[in-house]
């Protein structure tokens, strides 16, 4: 019980710190990759603090509602993750956040936000089946959807599910809004249809979304870490390597279209999942 309480507290307080910190590293490394010096590591925290200090401007009250629900969904999914509950449950709770992000974007008839929201829907459409397949294959290895079963599993999942891990990183790239998949909205310096789904969010409301995004980052990196759940060092190595690879991909790739994404990610993702599963059964 005490352990659970500590985990919940860590999820609530630690996750945004971790997520913000990751975002800071992201901007710093991206800058370095572009031969720039880059902002301080603390920059995402300054940004969010500033946003909370700005005047409240909203298009309507529904957007405020959506932003808060998005945050609630993101936080709850991280808490469930730290409590080692059912992977599918975590996924569905995270979908609450995802849908309210879209609804928040669609709250106004603004063309930029509308197009962004539609694209966000396509992004969700792209990664959802892949994530479910990832969870199902994890189930076929560990015999359970619960995260606790992954920790109980003696070998790292990465050994048995290497291709599935790559499929997960596709979902990670989409979720982090990295190139080539950053067309529903984009990150810091970049612009796409102004700011896509987030165009009409501003000030404290945008701050909430940003914090929610940190939670989501932690969730999805946590999912990656599960593939080397047998050792804490392994988890850190895996997260670091994956995140660094994400940054390289982000900086090396151009932004593509949603048609390309849907076709490419579904076909490659499904093919890799099937190959991995056949390999699993053949072994």
């Amino acid at each position: 019980m005490i352990k659970d309480t500590l985990l919940v507290l860590f999820a609530l307080a630690g996750a945004p710190l971790l997520g913000g910190f990751m975002a800071g590293i992201d901007r710093r490394i991206t800058a370095r990759l572009q031969a720039r010096f880059g902002p301080p590591i603390m920059q995402p925290f300054y940004d969010v603090a500033k946003l909370f200090g700005k005047q409240m401007i909203v298009p309507n009250s529904w957007q405020v509602f959506c932003a808060y629900v998005y945050l609630v969904g993101a936080v709850l999914s991280v808490v469930l993750f730290f409590l080692q509950s059912d992977l599918l449950l975590i996924f569905f709770v995270q979908a609450v956040g995802a849908v309210f992000l879209v609804l928040g974007g669609m709250a106004v008839p603004s063309p930029y936000a509308q197009v962004g929201a539609q694209r966000e829907l396509i992004q969700v459409l792209t990664y959802e089946p892949l994530l479910i397949l990832v969870f199902v294959t994890i189930y076929s290895v560990t015999g359970s959807f619960k995260i606790s079963a992954i920790y109980a599993h003696e070998a790292p999942l990465l050994k048995e599910l290497p291709l599935i891990f790559i499929v997960l990183t596709y979902a990670l790239t989409i979720k982090l809004r990295k190139s080539p998949f950053d067309f529903s909205t984009s990150h810091h310096g970049h612009q796409e249809i102004v700011k896509g789904v987030l165009t009409e969010h501003s000030g404290p409301i945008l701050g909430l979304i940003e914090v929610g995004h940190w939670y989501e980052t932690v969730l999805i990196l946590g999912l990656c870490a599960l593939f080397w759940a047998t050792s804490p060092v392994g988890m850190i190595i895996l997260i670091t390597a994956t995140y660094f690879a994400e940054l390289i991909v982000d900086n090396a790739m151009a932004r593509m279209t949603w048609r390309w994404m849907l076709g490419y990610v579904w076909s490659v993702g499904l093919a890799m999942s099937v190959i991995n599963i056949i390999w699993l059964y053949a072994k």
Binding site: Q34, R36, F37, G38, P40, Q43, Q191, V194, E200, S202
Partner: peptide
């Protein structure tokens, strides 16, 4: 100013496309 030589992102400056996000 945003290019590597001057790199105003050092000071946290981000070029946004939208007045609702800007300071």
């Amino acid at each position: 100013c945003l290019t590597p030589i001057y790199d105003v992102e050092r000071f946290g400056v981000v070029n946004v496309g939208n007045p609702k996000h800007a300071d």
